[in-house]
């Protein structure tokens, strides 16, 4: 045990939360606590105060709205896993959510919390990148702005979020019928696992020609990343063995993994290429 003595501000509603956020820019936003409580126990952080978003119903809902699904930032993973619209339209997000920790973590961890935590190893970020997810950042002073997740991270544990902003929701476009979706997590075990490599993929095919490609990756760079070179190697091409090899080769220029306690850079590079190749080959039918 190591108890933080920091005060906790408990807003009554979203407007109150935004006002508190503006008034206490050094305070940390507290959602499900599944990351913050670990950091506190490890003495990794010592925030002067917290703003507790957990109890705000405005941040919890999951709504299917026309061409996209809007997920409140404080929606927990169990809610996502059980949500009929998410299950129908975003099956790889459901799969990814089911690999976040295990049941106890899924019951408490939130999608907005994990996005803001900015871990390069987050399980759902690669899928959200592949799905072109857009964040709703909100502040009292400037209201709402929309930031694609692909533009959100600026460096290791750094984001474009201003000190007076919070993530209100994630808007996830519903994939087209022709979109092929994929999720693959290579972890240390089958649950309670931090990833060695994660791939979220979306490929739009016209016949056997790739018209759109999104490849989102975890644990291969300082932030969750897309792989623009590999994507470019696919777009406009027939999904042939040579196209696949070109995309795999291009991937090396997109990712910059490191050695850490969970794996090695060399393993990550090789495995990223291998799981990409396997997925693309499986689409050739």
């Amino acid at each position: 045990m190591m108890t933080s003595a920091a005060p906790v501000h408990t807003p009554a509603d979203l407007a109150d939360a935004l006002a508190l956020r503006a008034a206490h820019p050094a305070a940390w936003l507290l959602a499900g606590g599944t990351d913050i409580m670990v950091y506190l126990e490890a003495h990794a952080i010592d925030p002067p105060a917290f703003i507790d978003l957990w109890g705000l119903p405005e941040l919890r809902g999951v709504d299917s709205r026309g061409d996209h699904i809007r997920v409140g930032a404080c929606a927990d993973y169990t809610t996502l896993i059980d949500d009929p619209a998410v299950r129908a339209h975003l099956p790889p997000l459901v799969e990814a959510a089911r690999t976040v920790g295990a049941r106890q973590i899924q019951n408490r961890g939130t999608i907005g919390g994990n996005i803001a935590n900015a871990s390069p190893a987050g399980d759902t970020m690669p899928v959200l990148l592949a799905l072109d997810a857009v964040l709703e950042l909100q502040s009292a002073a400037r209201g709402l702005r929309a930031v694609p997740l692909a533009d959100f991270y600026t460096g290791y544990k750094r984001t474009v979020m201003a000190p007076d902003e919070l993530i209100a929701a994630v808007r996830i476009p519903k994939p087209a019928k022709a979109d092929r979706l994929h999720f693959r997590k290579v972890g240390t075990r089958l649950a309670q696992s931090i990833s060695k490599v994660v791939l979220g993929g979306r490929l739009r095919l016209d016949g056997d020609t790739v018209t759109e490609a999104r490849l989102g990756w975890g644990s291969v760079a300082a932030t969750p990343v897309r792989s623009p070179k590999a994507e470019a190697a696919l777009v406009g091409q027939a999904l042939s063995p040579s196209t696949i090899e070109a995309a795999v080769a291009a991937l090396d220029g997109d990712i910059t993994p490191i050695d850490d306690v969970r794996s090695t850079a060399g393993y990550r590079v090789r495995v990223a290429g291998r799981i990409l190749r396997s997925w693309l080959e499986s689409l050739r039918g």
């Binding site: 790889p92 799969e95 693959r184």
Partner: peptide, 11 residues
Amino acid sequence: TRPGGGQAAGR
């Protein structure tokens, strides 16, 4: 059998 995870069965 493992749920989710996405391993390519052929591999």
